[in-house]
Design a protein around this nucleic acid. Structure first.
Lengths: 274, 274
DNA sequence: ATATAGTATTATCAATATGATATTATCATA
DNA sequence: TATGATAATATCATATTGATAATACTATAT
């Protein structure tokens, strides 16, 4: 085994080397975290007396009110603090900017194109977050930097290169592709369009071999509801009997049923976390 | 749509804002890339007159000969240059430190624990590289920093938390786990044990739903050879008829066969890249 | 009370895929 | 010509899949 303290060619021990090490010898750059937060908007559609849940996949966007990209929509993000891990930074920034706390996150991808930010070299570690919207309340942002917070609905069928984002309340519509930085023509700030696209592809991929989708769901849900979520994330329709067979392993029936729907009730299930 | 040039609360246009922006307002930190390079060591075992290829999965390690972690084994890595993307940085560093050029890489994970490097805050974007060893030649490193370059054999059965690394030529053996930084007890430099573990899990996972494994293989190979590679990456034995059925979709027979093996020859196949 | 329309759920079945074992093929040597 | 070893295919019971059909249940309309 190695015997410490070793001395290098200059006769220095590791402790001595570190005392004379100059961090300013390198290029100035910053590291930020930006989080793609997905949730499901589950609104009740009523046609005559009949009721149906319509599910939408949504992503949380903030309107920037300072330079750069003033006026454009962006992901919640911020710089990594001195004494926190990347995961901690992502959670802290999310809490500060949106009020969302204790959410499921996973690291997504790191974006480091030299021209992705006009201020300086800023390397962004992107995170994916999934939340059950019914459990959380968005706060009014405390920072002066953000004027607006909105859930944009996502339309992203399979085998399409671009995705459509719609903010129904304001009638705003954004078309997002994967353009390389500086993505000046993008309706989103910086390269955040690429981040959202990457997040969607990760979610679409992982939904088949992990259980992350249940982070989007309330404690109790119907199989039909669950299938619709698989369909909007996967971007394609599924056959109900096939879906039910496969999902049965992951969920447990509660014996409770939906009511007053104008058709046969659906049973409520919970995630089988075992 | 947004009308440019917009002015912020201070009456500044974006151009004016950028002119007065101070990059030195933030913490000093650096970003590096470290690459986990895997390849297959395919050595011919001879028992009496009979010959058999024995496959080993190996990872490329460099012995550090400067502080910090002087004397420990590390992954090829270096700092990200001012005007290059992260991918370009990974490829450049790999070329400079090992002589490997034009290899398959993909971004793996970003490690950013505050104590992962004793010099300063250094955030590392880890890459995974897969090469066919028969196509490349390791050069003697040009940098004074490295005295040794070695392919360590990997032993990593399924459902084990740690992996064993062996350098047969030197009789060296390392046991690597996933200890959080600062990983002072690790036989590897910094948190590079975690990087290798992460790379192995990525490879093990992706081998089933992508074709990345062919980056490890020479142009022509036998199915038995291919199965052994799946087995050492997956960490478990596979049934030959089952494996053959599944892999048949991805490969094309050449009509050529191995020779002088002391048993029935195997046909050589190529990757069906269509 | 009964019919109706709509969604929820299960039944059914052919086709395909899988896991496992057994059999055959081929070569270099004894 | 026999032997032992690996390569490759055959076989088959079982499990899974894709698809369609049939049944179940409820809120309203009649």
């Amino acid at each position: 085994m190695t015997n410490y303290p070793l001395r290098d060619q200059n006769g220095l021990t590791e402790a001595a080397f570190l005392r004379q090490y100059d961090p300013d010898a390198f290029e100035r750059l910053a590291v930020s975290v930006d989080t793609v937060v997905f949730s499901i908007d589950s609104r009740i559609q009523t046609e005559n007396y009949r009721k149906l849940d319509e599910q939408k996949l949504t992503v949380l966007l903030l309107k920037r009110n300072e330079h750069p990209c003033l006026g454009k929509w962006s992901l919640p993000g911020g710089f990594v603090g001195e004494k926190e891990t990347l995961d901690q930074a992502a959670l802290r920034v999310l809490r500060d900017k949106t009020g969302l706390d204790d959410v499921y996150i996973e690291q997504l991808y790191t974006f480091g194109h030299p021209q992705r930010d006009p201020r300086m070299r800023i390397i962004s570690v992107a995170y994916l977050a999934l939340i059950d919207r019914s459990q959380y309340q968005l706060k009014n942002p405390d920072s002066q930097k953000i004027t607006d917070l909105a859930w944009y609905e996502i339309d992203f069928p399979k085998n399409t290169p671009t995705l459509r984002l719609k903010w129904e309340a304001a009638g705003e519509m954004l078309e997002v592709g994967n353009s390389p930085p500086p993505a000046l023509g993008s309706p989103l700030a910086f390269d955040h369009g690429s981040l959202i696209l990457e997040g969607l592809l990760r979610l679409r991929n992982k939904i088949d071999y992990t259980d992350i989708v249940f982070n989007l769901l309330p404690g109790k849900f119907t199989i039909t509801h669950l299938q619709q979520i698989y369909e909007i994330i996967g971007g394609e329709k599924l056959l109900a009997p096939v879906f039910r067979r496969k999902i049965a392993r992951k969920i447990t029936p509660t014996g409770e049923y939906t009511q007053e729907r104008g058709h046969r009730p659906s049973q409520l299930y919970v995630y089988k976390d075992s």
